[in-house]
């Protein structure tokens, strides 16, 4: 008997449950979103987790959706850039990106936004980065203040070839300050 190379997969995306009845095991969460669910907000920039354009939140944490096999994430809660706004009311980060001009071509933008949402939560939970002073370990779990250097380091998994970095950092600071 031929081994089964596809399965039924359920993903909750932006609060909506989607059942993909016969999904190729090779299909990534990114391709499931883009090619099966019509959610093209998450972008494919490199397909190898080298650029961050595909960043989404999976069960609340940011991840590169291009390397997640959808079958392994059966049942997961996924938030994409399409799910950040509350109806017509933009997420504060989306507003800040507009005001600060935190993008040019817009292709890395969904990934930058999802990454920033996840990153702010991580720092809020006290997760350190490589630039966090080690002395901070004295109070584990205390939120890490997001200095510009912290933001830059934590956002470095999101490349922007247009070079909007300074404006992105300013936009994130507008929201976290």
């Amino acid at each position: 008997m031929e081994p089964q190379t596809s399965s039924a997969v359920t993903l909750s995306v932006n609060g909506v449950r989607h059942r993909l009845r016969d999904l190729d095991h090779r299909t990534t969460v990114l391709d499931a979103l883009r090619e099966h669910l019509g959610l093209t907000g998450a972008k494919k920039g490199c397909d190898h987790a080298q650029c961050g354009a595909c960043t989404v939140l999976v069960d609340g944490r940011r991840a590169n959706s291009c390397l997640l096999l959808a079958v392994a994430y059966d049942g997961a809660e996924v938030t994409t850039v399409e799910g950040l706004a509350d109806g017509d009311a933009l997420h504060p980060l989306q507003e800040a990106f507009l005001v600060r001009d935190g993008f040019q071509c817009g292709y890395c933008t969904p990934g930058q936004l999802c990454s920033a949402v996840g990153m702010i939560a991580e720092a809020g939970e006290g997760a350190p980065s490589v630039v966090t002073p080690v002395a901070g370990a004295a109070s584990p779990g205390a939120p890490v203040p997001l200095s510009p250097d912290e933001i830059r380091e934590r956002m470095s998994g999101n490349l922007c070839r247009c070079g909007a970095y300074g404006n992105i950092v300013a936009a994130i600071e507008d929201v976290t300050r």
Partner: peptide
């Protein structure tokens, strides 16, 4: 923390 990116480390 010196390796990869925040997303990959997650």
């Amino acid at each position: 923390l010196a390796g990869a990116s925040g997303q990959i480390r997650n």
